[in-house]
Simulated scan of single mutants.
Amino acid sequence: MKRHPTTSRQLLETQDFGFSLIELLFVIAIAAIFAAMAAPSFRDFIAGQRIKTASYDISYALTGARSEAIKRNLNVVLAPVSGNWQNGWTVTTGATTIAQHEPFVDLTITGPAAGLTYNSSGRLAAAVAPFAISSSVSAGAAPRCVLVDLSGLPSSKAGAC
C-alpha cells in the first residue's frame, strides 16, 4: 500500500515530470496543421516583399543614373542586361560602367526595351514605358509599377501599370 505524501519533498518524489509521448505527438500534430495553413500566405508575403524590393531597386538605379548624368555632365545610360530587366541592369557612361545590378529570381520585370538615357541636365532623352513588376511564382502577390516622368524622376506605386 502506497502512503500518502505528508511533506513537500515526499510530494515531489511521487510526481512525474515531463511530457508523455502521446502529449508530444499531439502538440506536433497541431503545430503541423497551423504551419500548413500559414504556408500559402507566407509565400505570398515573401513574393510581395521581393516585388517591393525590386521596385525600390529600380527607383534607386534611376535616381542614381540621373544624379551621375548631372554630376558628370555626360549622358548616362541605364540598360537591361541581355535585353531583359530580370537579368539585372547596368549604368554606363560611354565605355565606363558606373554600376550594375544582379538578376532577380522569380520575378517578371518589363520596362523600356532599349533602356533609358539621361542627358547632362538629368532629363530623359525620350519618354519611356513604365516598369511593371510581378511575381512569376505567386499569383496572390500584388504587382507594382515604377513610372518615370520626362524630368527623369521615378515614382513607385502598388498595382498594375
Score class of each variant (00 low, 15 high):
Lys2Tyr: 08
Lys2Asn: 14
His4Ser: 12
His4Trp: 13
Pro5Ile: 02
Pro5Trp: 02
Thr6Tyr: 13
Ser8Pro: 14
Ser8His: 15
Arg9Asp: 11
Gln10Glu: 15
Leu11Arg: 05
Leu11Asn: 05
Leu12Gly: 01
Leu12Ala: 03
Asp16Gly: 15
Asp16Arg: 15
Phe17Cys: 08
Ser20Arg: 11
Leu21Glu: 15
Glu23Thr: 04
Glu23Arg: 10
Glu23Pro: 06
Leu24Asn: 01
Leu24Ile: 08
Leu25Phe: 00
Phe26Gln: 07
Val27Trp: 04
Ile30Ser: 11
Ala31Pro: 09
Ala32Arg: 04
Ala32Ser: 13
Ala32His: 01
Ile33Phe: 14
Phe34Gly: 15
Phe34Glu: 02
Phe34Pro: 03
Met37Arg: 10
Ala39Tyr: 14
Ala39Gln: 12
Ala39Pro: 13
Ser41Gln: 11
Arg43Val: 12
Phe45Val: 10
Phe45Tyr: 13
Phe45Asp: 08
Ile46Ser: 07
Ile46His: 04
Ile46Lys: 02
Ala47Met: 03
Gly48Cys: 03
Gly48Trp: 07
Ile51Ala: 03
Lys52Ile: 00
Lys52Met: 06
Lys52Arg: 11
Thr53Trp: 00
Thr53Asn: 12
Ala54Gln: 12
Asp57His: 03
Asp57Val: 00
Ser59Gln: 06
Ala61Ile: 06
Ala61Met: 06
Gly64Leu: 09
Gly64Glu: 12
Ala65Phe: 06
Ser67Ala: 12
Ser67Asn: 11
Glu68Arg: 15
Ala69Ser: 14
Ala69Asn: 09
Ala69Phe: 04
Arg72Cys: 07
Arg72Trp: 05
Asn73Phe: 12
Asn73Ala: 13
Leu74Phe: 08
Asn75Trp: 01
Val77Lys: 09
Val81Met: 08
Ser82Val: 10
Ser82Cys: 11
Trp85Ala: 12
Gly88Asp: 15
Trp89Gly: 09
Trp89Phe: 15
Trp89Asp: 12
Thr90Tyr: 03
Thr90His: 07
Thr92Asn: 03
Thr93Trp: 09
Thr96Cys: 00
Thr96Arg: 07
Ile98Phe: 11
Ala99Phe: 04
Gln100Gly: 14
His101Pro: 01
His101Met: 08
Glu102Met: 06
Phe104Asp: 11
Phe104Met: 11
Val105Lys: 05
Asp106Tyr: 10
Thr108Pro: 05
Ile109Met: 08
Ile109Lys: 04
Thr110Trp: 02
Pro112Ala: 13
Ala114Ile: 07
Gly115Ile: 04
Thr117Val: 07
Ser121Arg: 15
Ser121Glu: 04
Ser121Ala: 15
Gly122Met: 03
Arg123Pro: 00
Ala126Lys: 06
Ala126Gly: 06
Ala127Phe: 01
Ala127Thr: 14
Pro130Phe: 03
Phe131Lys: 00
Phe131Asn: 04
Phe131Val: 03
Ile133Glu: 02
Ile133Gly: 00
Ser135Ala: 03
Ser136Asn: 07
Ala139Trp: 02
Gly140Pro: 00
Ala141Ile: 01
Ala141Trp: 08
Ala141Gln: 12
Ala142Glu: 11
Arg144Phe: 01
Cys145Tyr: 01
Val146Glu: 00
Leu147Phe: 03
Leu147Thr: 10
Val148Tyr: 09
Ser151Leu: 14
Gly152Asp: 09
Leu153Met: 14
Ser155Asn: 07
Gly159Thr: 07
Ala160Arg: 07
Ala160Pro: 03
